[in-house]
């Protein structure tokens, strides 16, 4: 029996919601993985000389986030700064006065990635919540 047939015939509403969210989640993983690996070298090249130093990151973070895969965390900081500049400049990048040398299309791409990232985390939490309900219902 195919997945769709099973969902239409046998699954209850909670199960359908959970499985749909899981499918959306895996799709977002695929899109985000491609997106961030395209943006990562572009942003690193433009922003590392300005931002990736002990003024904004601790020595330990500089060592840890220097190279892939942990450098993706560094890129997520940059994307957060591009998307929410006022908040980021009050928090991690305190005292940063300079404008970022980022072209508008790159800013748009970074913002889209940020919102997809937030959506993915929300979907993941929703899967966890629905899944926990199903798990506890099955257990008891």
């Amino acid at each position: 029996m195919s997945v769709i047939e099973t969902l239409l015939q046998d699954a209850d509403i909670l199960g359908v919601i959970a499985i749909s969210l899981i499918a959306i989640g895996f799709l977002l993983i695929f899109i985000l993985a491609i997106f961030i690996h395209i943006l990562h070298p572009l942003l690193s090249r433009r922003l590392d000389s300005l931002l990736f130093n002990p003024q904004w990151f601790s020595i330990g973070e500089v060592a840890m986030l220097s190279l892939w895969p942990l450098s993706l965390f560094k890129t997520s900081h940059y994307i957060f700064l591009i998307t929410f500049p006022n908040y980021a400049r009050r928090k991690r990048f305190k005292g940063l006065q300079e404008n970022l040398p980022i072209e508008p299309p790159l800013k748009l791409a970074a913002s889209i990635l940020m919102y997809l990232h937030i959506l993915f985390v929300v979907v993941g939490i929703a899967v966890f919540i629905f899944g926990t309900i199903i798990y506890t219902t099955e257990a008891f």
Binding site: D12, G15, I19, V127, G131
Partner: peptide, 16 residues
Amino acid sequence: TGAIFKSIYDTNMMQV
């Protein structure tokens, strides 16, 4: 999450 996925599979997709 692994345990949750298993639970979802057991309750909704065991025929697949």
